[in-house]
């Protein structure tokens, strides 16, 4: 790959309290590609994403995003560079209505009708629940709302943490379709995903984490074809997900 990566992590360390979680993470995310971060539970995937977003402070190393050093910025400034974060566990605001949750994703200018129609076309159920508090939605609907909120503005990078966690298969298909449409539209996505089948369908590049480090980098296609490697790095193979 000859082009410059959009996001680069070099030797990033993160401490949470007295725990040394990230122990020198090196990662590159290229524009208009879906990079999937894989690994067992506790490997440091979520901490990596939260460190990129500035929600955890990197104690060493460098994070750069298109000429900007993210280490020196706070979360609002990082978000304003065009990085959208979809946290795990349905990161919506339960007491606010569906409409208000979406408005929070638009910034001060409010809805741009064409964008809103596009998002509502992808997720028609949001139209039905428009004025209801987001807390009344099901788990899958909340996850969809969180993703829709991230899509309310054109973004340079989507950072998405385990969107399918705990969701019914039908809802996983809805999310997969939405991400495929995003990908077709040329979006750059950094995705943490435990559902290997979904990761294999969406991903262009794969990185596997273990004990706070990246231990494997390849194309997603290469990882998806190598069952022995999947079993060694992830403990499960794609075949076991099908």
């Amino acid at each position: 790959m000859t082009e410059q990566p959009l996001l680069v992590l070099k030797g990033v360390h993160t401490h949470i309290g007295r725990y040394h979680i990230l122990q020198g993470v090196d990662l590159e995310v290229y524009a208009q590609r879906v990079s999937v971060l894989l690994g067992r539970n506790g490997a440091g995937k979520t901490t990596t994403l939260r460190t990129i977003l500035g929600l955890w402070h990197a104690s060493a190393g460098e994070i750069s995003f298109d000429q900007h050093r993210l280490n020196t910025l706070d979360p609002p400034a990082i978000a304003r560079l065009g990085i959208a974060y979809v946290p795990e566990n349905m990161g919506i605001f339960s007491g606010l209505s569906v409409r208000e949750n979406l408005l929070l994703g638009t910034g001060p200018k409010g809805f741009r009708n064409s964008r809103l129609e596009e998002v509502l076309a992808s997720f028609p159920l949001l139209r039905e629940k428009w004025n209801l508090p987001a807390g009344t939605l099901s788990g899958g609907q909340k996850q969809i709302l969180a993703i829709a909120r991230a899509m309310m503005l054109p973004r340079r990078l989507f950072v998405v943490d385990e969107p399918t966690k705990g969701l019914a298969p039908a809802m996983v298909d809805v999310l997969l379709d939405a991400f495929l449409r995003l990908k077709e539209g040329g979006a750059t996505i950094l995705l943490v995903e435990q559902n290997f089948a979904m990761a294999a369908t969406l991903g262009d590049d794969a990185a596997v984490m273990e004990d706070g480090r990246i231990v494997h980098v390849s194309s997603m296609a290469a990882l998806a074809q190598d069952e022995a490697l999947q079993t060694r790095l992830l403990g499960l193979s794609l075949a076991s997900h099908q």
Binding site: P76, A79, G91, F93, G95, L104
Partner: peptide, 21 residues
Amino acid sequence: PFGRVLRAIRENEFRAEALGY
């Protein structure tokens, strides 16, 4: 919009910060 952000902060200030507020 100001009040909407206040309510978002009340629920989860980290999420509000990650949205740019």
